[in-house]
Amino acid sequence: MDRLLFFMWRVWRNPPSRTALLVMLGALALSIGLVLIERGLGWPDWLRADRVPRQRLPHL
């Protein structure tokens, strides 16, 4: 929580440029959109990360 408050204080004291603000808002909108798609429609199987069994090296 302290890190978030420090970040907000820094942004309040030194506002970002318009380009940086648009990039931050775009990243926020993209992440919120992905969460809404995942929650609403589900996540496609081809995007799932499955655990792959670790191969053991033979002892020499």
Rank of each mutant, 00 (worst) to 15 (best):
I37C: 09
P44G: 00
L60D: 13
L25S: 10
R18I: 09
G33Q: 03
D50V: 11
A20Y: 02
G33T: 08
S17G: 15
L22T: 09
L25A: 13
R39S: 10
N14W: 09
L5V: 07
R54P: 02
D2V: 09
L28Q: 07
N14C: 07
R56E: 15
L5C: 01
R13G: 00
L21P: 00
R3D: 14
Q55R: 09
V52D: 03
T19V: 15
W43A: 07
T19L: 14
S17A: 05
R56L: 15
R56Q: 13
G40S: 15
L57A: 12
F7R: 10
D45T: 05
A29Q: 03
L21E: 04
L30C: 03
W9T: 13
P44S: 02
F7A: 15
M8E: 12
A29Y: 05
R54G: 06
D45Q: 05
V52K: 06
I32S: 11
L5H: 09
W9V: 05
A20E: 15
G26T: 10
I32K: 02
H59F: 13
L60K: 00
D2N: 05
F7V: 10
I37F: 11
L41V: 11
L25K: 03
A27H: 03
P53R: 04
R10W: 04
H59W: 10
L4R: 10
L41W: 13
R18M: 09
R39K: 13
H59S: 14
T19E: 14
L30E: 07
M8W: 01
W46T: 07
L36N: 02
F6Y: 00
L47T: 10
I32C: 13
L4H: 02
A20K: 04
R54K: 05
R3M: 08
A29I: 11
L22C: 12
L36A: 14
F6L: 13
D50P: 01
R56V: 15
I37A: 09
V35A: 15
G26W: 06
S31R: 11
W9C: 06
R10I: 00
V23G: 01
V11H: 01
R3S: 11
F7I: 12
Q55L: 14
V52P: 00
M1L: 10
L25D: 03
W9H: 06
L60R: 08
L60S: 06
R10Y: 04
G26E: 05
L5M: 11
W9D: 15
L36C: 08
S17I: 02
W9L: 14
V23M: 08
L60W: 11
L28I: 10
P15V: 04
W12Y: 13
G42C: 01
L21G: 05
I32L: 15
L41P: 01
L41C: 10
L5W: 06
L36T: 05
G33Y: 03
V11W: 02
W43E: 04
S17H: 01
F7N: 12
L47Y: 03
G33W: 08
L30W: 11
P53G: 03
L36H: 02
G33P: 00
P44C: 03
V23S: 02
R18L: 15
P44I: 04
R10A: 13
R13S: 10
Q55H: 04
V35T: 12
P15L: 02
N14V: 12
V23R: 09
L47E: 01
A27C: 15
D45L: 07
L41I: 07
